[in-house]
Nucleic acid binder design. Structure first.
Lengths: 154, 154
DNA sequence: GCAGAACGGTTCAAATTTGAACCACCAGGA
DNA sequence: TCCTGGTGGTTCAAATTTGAACCGTTCTGC
């Protein structure tokens, strides 16, 4: 039981900044999306991921990995979006167990409708308040962090 | 309805990195704290904030602002922590409506117990994977983001 | 003083999230 | 072929989170 290496001032500032920015941005965008498009950020992200996939569909597990949520959480949200008609489920030909989530026409429409406002909010909160150099540095640092965690946590 | 300013490659990388790092770090620390100390990250943060306050206590609203959660959410968590004996409630002398949350001896004990493992996890996930220069840049950028959002969102 | 607005916390119902248990089903070796 | 160990998704109960409604209290301007 060694004496732990506490954070120095510089490290603490980075950590507090990370936690604060994380929560503030999340809350801000959550509200913006809910108010302007009636979607939660999770739901919006689902639509984005599906829309970016080759044929507008992804396997449940694949999608859960990208969203970084639990499998059961995804099942719940897909069911909600299905009720709303924004996505559908399709079974996988090569694996009976498999399920594809697929964005519908209506899903595309809602996404197109929501995107401009969301991008504007992301700009206002994060992008446009930083210099291009800062953005590059941020992308670089957070990319490293993500890669490491994906490697260790799976 | 102007054409929205979409994100360029650099901006998109920063944004995706932010979202990914945010979720991955949150999930990682949530698990670490739950496994090692039986606390949620929110609960841990409550203890940290109280322990750092002058006399180990803060007004509910003040605490909610620092944690960036809703008032009702804080009421719930303080109740949980109170049941567990880690914090107590004290009424405010100068304002009958006011309530102080106060860390208890047991709360201090649990916090001291949990801190080393948590700091180690924070180091492994964020601090030690970056250079000091990156950390400074990160603190700077995210500090800016937080300040702006606090100013606009309140 | 006093009416009315704003504040500080709690309560409530509804939505979401999580992990564990479960149920088929695929894959690989004996 | 037949086990056996994972895999892919769903189901379930329990914990958490949120916003709106609420209630007494404090503050303001008049």
């Amino acid at each position: 039981m060694d004496e732990p290496r506490w954070l120095n001032e510089n490290e603490m500032a980075a950590w507090r900044g990370f936690v604060a920015a994380t929560n503030l941005v999340a809350r801000h965008l959550e509200r913006q999306l809910k108010d302007d498009a009636g979607l939660s950020h999770t739901q919006y992200e689902i639509l984005v991921q599906l829309s970016a996939a080759p044929d507008g569909s992804l396997r449940m597990t694949d999608l859960a990995d990208r969203l970084i949520t639990s499998k059961s959480g995804l099942t719940y949200q897909i069911t909600q979006l299905e009720k709303a008609g924004l996505v559908g489920r399709r079974s996988c030909p090569s694996d009976v167990r498999g399920v594809f989530a697929e964005i519908t026409e209506e899903g595309w429409r809602v996404l197109r409708e929501a995107a401009p406002g969301h991008v504007a909010a992301v700009r206002a909160a994060l992008i446009d308040v930083l210099t291009p150099e800062q953005l590059t540095g941020l992308a670089d640092s957070l990319g490293t962090v993500s890669d490491r965690l994906r490697a260790t946590d799976g």
